[in-house]
Design a protein around this nucleic acid. Structure first.
Lengths: 199, 199, 199, 199
DNA sequence: TATGAATGAGATTTCATTCAT
DNA sequence: TATGAATGAAATCTCATTCAT
């Protein structure tokens, strides 16, 4: 089930596909989609550019599967968190922490879900739908918190966007070799962002 | 004084330069720097691509001056706000509102200051310095608030990055033709983001 | 009569035309025809590129008139030298010295007659004819010297080309600010080319 | 050993690289570097312009490797000649003949070492150094001849430049399809430049 | 006479992609 | 499965030239 994100079209080794996605995601995150060439990705894998096309149809598909992987994981975690018992504040903190840690999880190579504009148009709808679903999950949690009185009466949509912007923005400055560990960042962001909602 | 950002190299009408920058910034914001061609910018101005080079040395320079314009304005406003009397909470709200409105001010054509990676290397240091200066301004305000007891004991650097991520992220989804006015967004973000810091 | 090379089409100040040609020739000599832009020439004159077109039809024409000027002078001197009394050896030495000094005469700005390939096709025949005429003059002098016994029995055409190659090549390395004066070079070349190296 | 000039960066068949260099050198020699487009070179090889970039990084590099090839060969021959026994006059004649034949050797595709100004700045120092080394070789031979009394007391530097100018100038007028064979030209030039014209 | 502005053709170069082997 | 080689479209940029003023 875990491999669904990656498994496709028969024999093509899933491991290799996953490895490629990891490197691609890493490159996209560091340099941006357009500034990253297939050459760069291939070189970082010790392959030739042509070989990548045995595993993926196009550069756009590479981006698509990166984002798919990311979003699937985020959405899974998000829904799991929502369905647990507990107060909205605590749930939201947990969700933000999970989001940050997923984003910065190097081995997962995720975090490429920002450059939606670069997606091949045929792939975009699916990603947008998933992204909306995730945003909806988040918004629903906020709405509940507002209703229950746990949160102040904010506009849930804008609050959700503020939170997403803050956490997604991390990838623009964070570097694995930098001083801050993901958990530290995750905790601080959860505190600052949820504190603003709670009464 | 506003035009300083734009005035350079003799006659080359500043108005035209400003007009070009506006359109370029708009295009960069919508499609991203790499996905925007000189053709696109020229067409939106009713010019030929070559004509742009009469006003700007390169596409990278176009980005540079967009960012310069943006940052100059943000920094000016930021410093002005800090030097006024008042509590840190209120100042921070004002600063966030000003930031959002600057970012979304279409006629200013600003908001392109996100794609630092795409800057020509010779131009990057200046932009990074200005960006750091702005971040420092924000961090300093937060630090003061923490010291004065107005804010909770957060890590000022991470708090600043959370706020900046949230507000800068707006340009990724906001469209002039959408339902929300800049002022509305500005107010909501200020509330959510500052509320999290205040005791 | 002297101005014929430059005077054309009525009022257009001949002085200005001459001044432009001097600068153009200088630029062509230093950087080569293709690497020299109309901008460069205009800037060195304190003009705008457009203004040059008031005086000359095209960049190719600029080259043409430079070469015309050069060749006219060389040919005039060459013929004068030939018609004087004296031995062929001495005449050839004088001709070489005159050629070198003309070539390196900065104020004359000549020496641009090397890049024949760059001439507009309509202008080429005239230049080629003049160049041939000059070469013929030189060849004739050598032929006479061979006949008179002053020179060894060389192939006059190849000998002429050797001499021309040697002297024209000077512009590829000589710089006004360098240590050698034109007269010094002229003398040395005349000696080596006419007298040879061996005793 | 000959291929060292060409061997680089892995497989990229050296034969193809050499073939490209030959054509490029030929085109540069005929039309000049700036007047030769990558299109021209590609067409003469039955390729697309883009394909050239699989073998060479840039047009400037094409020029660089042409010159490198030329200079390596010239320098090798020059040094070999100097180290042989014999009188300076005879050695100089041999060197000039070798130089001319190398220059006009079509299959070698050499002779492009004149347009130093067009070299990419990073490549220029190497070429200039090699060129200086060659000139030094020649100058040294002349100096020895002067000391030994075989040559008249000329300025060795200027004499060397005269000889180089004469032989390099050949490429400006020589065409493979013309009437004179390289050996004929080589002999005549050697005779005139070493023996002079006068008896 | 000269300028600011613009044009349009062309140059080099990049890059995702393909394909025979 | 993978590679070397090649393609072709597009991108940025340059530059001689024109033209209204």
């Amino acid at each position: 089930m875990v491999q669904i994100a990656v498994a496709r079209s028969g024999p093509r080794s899933q491991e290799k596909r996953a490895e490629i996605l990891r490197r691609a995601a890493d490159a996209f995150r560091r340099r941006g989609f357009h500034a990253t060439g297939m050459r760069d990705i291939a070189r970082s894998l010790g392959m030739t550019p042509g070989a990548l096309y045995y595993y993926f149809r196009s550069k756009g598909d590479l981006l698509y599967f990166c984002q798919q992987h990311s979003l699937r994981r985020l959405l899974g975690e998000g829904r799991a968190i929502l369905s647990r018992p507990g107060g909205e504040g605590e749930k939201l903190r947990t969700l933000i922490r999970a989001h940050v840690e997923t984003l910065l999880d190097e081995t997962g190579g995720s975090a490429a879900h920002l450059e939606v504009r670069a997606l091949p148009s045929g792939r975009r709808p699916w990603i947008l739908a998933q992204r909306d679903a995730y945003e909806t999950t988040l918004r629903r949690l906020i709405t509940r918190g507002v209703r229950s009185g746990a949160f102040r009466p904010v506009d849930p949509k804008l609050a959700a966007l503020a939170i997403l912007g803050a956490v997604n923005g991390i990838v623009l400055w964070w570097k694995p070799e930098g001083p801050r560990r993901p958990a530290e960042i995750a905790g601080a962001f959860a505190e600052v962002l949820v504190g603003g909602l709670e009464r």
